[in-house]
Write a protein that binds this DNA or RNA. Structure first.
Lengths: 81, 81, 81, 81
DNA sequence: CTGCCATTTTACCGGC
DNA sequence: GCCGGTAAAATGGCAG
């Protein structure tokens, strides 16, 4: 661990503050997201279902290349590459 | 999918896309935070300890806010606002 | 929280021991899995690729009904159910 | 998939299936553990505290084992085994 | 207030 | 023996 006190302390403080700044922005975005859900709910949509939709669409993105990956993996696993 | 449900479908899609856009930004910030921790680690700092520090400072902020809220509550109760 | 000492203590101990027993079995299975990977490695297979395969196949299982789920969700979300 | 790579493919499949079988059993045990925690919670115990207890007891076991290993090491160093 | 879900933290495992 | 990345556990937050 770097020295306690002096320049190392300033350095640590700098890192911590950068992180805290980023986390504030992240929290702000989380709040924005919450607001959008609330707005959608006010329009009559079901928040729980919307969350499921978002989750499933994210999974779909991950799956887009999954089949190819599996084939590639089998090939590599079997030394066919 | 836009044809399913007509207007409502478009509306839903709009909400979902807004959320997904915000979540992308949130993920980008999470990656930035990760990078800062990695950089700090490369400078010799202990990431686990740093995380504890950040959490502790956040809790203190939270508690401080809570105190202020209670104070406000009392002020309003006393007609001091 | 239940009383400290007396019957509650015995009860707690009983729960803890049941959990520890189950965790031992789980750890034993984890060791078995490790052994299989080691054996496969000894036969010339790449452990990292095998782990990826297992992970992707698990995802495939999860995806098996995903498309239907998504359609159902959209229908419900749009009040078409 | 059995046709890909012939014998090697079958061999790989065999390993993968053994692993998947073991992982299913492991998941079942994890579910059992979850159930015990839930049951304990229903009896009035604090699950979070219980988890800490289990972790602590495991650490103590680990440390005890470590001490015994060190003792063994010394014994061997002294030709006492 | 309770259960579920997302996030975050911790622990593990293989590789170098 | 550490490091990086990946899976598991645990905590926190949110909707109902």
């Amino acid at each position: 661990m770097a020295e306690v006190g002096g320049i190392a302390g300033d350095h640590l403080r700098s890192f911590i503050e950068r992180i805290e700044r980023l986390e504030e922005e992240k929290a702000a975005l989380a709040a924005d997201i919450k607001d959008v859900y609330a707005e959608a709910k006010g329009t009559g949509f079901d928040v729980k279902i919307m969350r499921q939709l978002v989750r499933l669409r994210k999974m779909e993105d991950h799956d887009r290349t999954e089949q190819e990956e599996i084939l590639d993996l089998y090939k590599r696993a079997l030394g066919m590459e």
